[in-house]
Design a protein around this nucleic acid. Structure first.
Ligand code: SF4
Ligand code: SF4
Lengths: 145, 145
DNA sequence: CATATTTAAGAGTATTAATTCTTAATTAAC
DNA sequence: GTTAATTAAGAATTAATACTCTTAAATATG
């Protein structure tokens, strides 16, 4: 069941690492994150570049540089990250879909899936990095094994 | 949002074509299905071979041969097809997942996603080809553009 | 038995996603 | 200014998925 690409999964996990690790400096280095989460440095760098271009992150080069959230973590919603990394058409085609399917031309599971899709969408819209960060700090959930 | 592979999508649509087109003979030819649904003959043949090997379909070679459901359509559930084509581990790893995630080691969205996953699973378990076939015959939904 | 029809099997190709690698640019500190 | 640290950019590679093609086997019919 592949709901999100590796790109999105890594991206979200990395951002959650940032919000759940109150850092000393202004910027968090990508190297630190990939070391902690055991991700590929180059791959995450590429993912973060995309998020920087989309205005979700700031970046700063040089010693003690790194990346930082462009907005307070309670104003960054999961949906922002998913749409930035998966594309704005993320919710368009989905379960059984033939070309041109949708409300007008529903596939046999459209009625059911419409509800699921709304649940997912509203959850992604209403969940901020800050909320999930708190859960991690409270050790209710975790980011790695 | 790619919940199912093309393989599963085509497979399910093709089976639904069968149940929604009461055939004259015992077997339906793959050529007829791919012509109607505008799918690749060779690709669907491969998908059906898998379903035949898994015991979901019967096949018969030669003139007026084809494939047929191995059980009455009200006894074939969507979950059977999905697990056959996506693998039995379909529900194991899902939204944010790191290696080894799950109930014991929940990722930050596990609580939410657990519910979604159960909804999807129970719907797939409780929906038969016959049920969807009826909806198609009633023209509530459709299989192609 | 010859021919036409149809699935079986799997090799081969193309496209996309995932990951790695190389080189450049920016910045801090000495 | 030299060096070290760090992100930027994007080419190159690998792996997975999607799709196509070729050949073989089975079966019905004349
Ligand atoms: S659920 Fe609706 S949008 Fe999704 S594939 Fe079916 S018809 Fe298309
Ligand atoms: S929701 Fe549960 S099973 Fe799915 S990825 Fe998160 S922890 Fe793993």
């Amino acid at each position: 069941m592949k709901v999100l690409s590796q790109t999105s999964k890594y991206g979200i996990r990395a951002l959650l690492y940032i919000v759940s690790n109150p850092s000393t400096g202004e910027y968090v280095s990508i190297g630190e994150i990939t070391k902690e989460l055991n991700l590929s440095f180059h791959f995450l760098t590429k993912i973060f570049r995309e998020l920087t271009n989309k205005g979700i992150l700031y970046s700063y080069r040089g010693p003690s540089g790194g990346i930082a959230l462009a907005k307070p973590s309670d104003q960054i919603m999961l949906i922002d990250i998913v749409l930035a990394l998966e594309g704005e058409d993320y919710f368009d085609n989905c379960l059984l879909g033939f070309p041109g399917c949708g409300v007008e031309k529903p596939c046999p599971v459209h009625n059911f899936w419409k509800g699921i899709k709304e649940d997912i969408k509203s959850h992604l819209c209403n969940t901020s990095l800050a909320q999930l960060g708190e859960k991690i700090l409270a050790e209710e959930v975790r980011l790695f094994d």
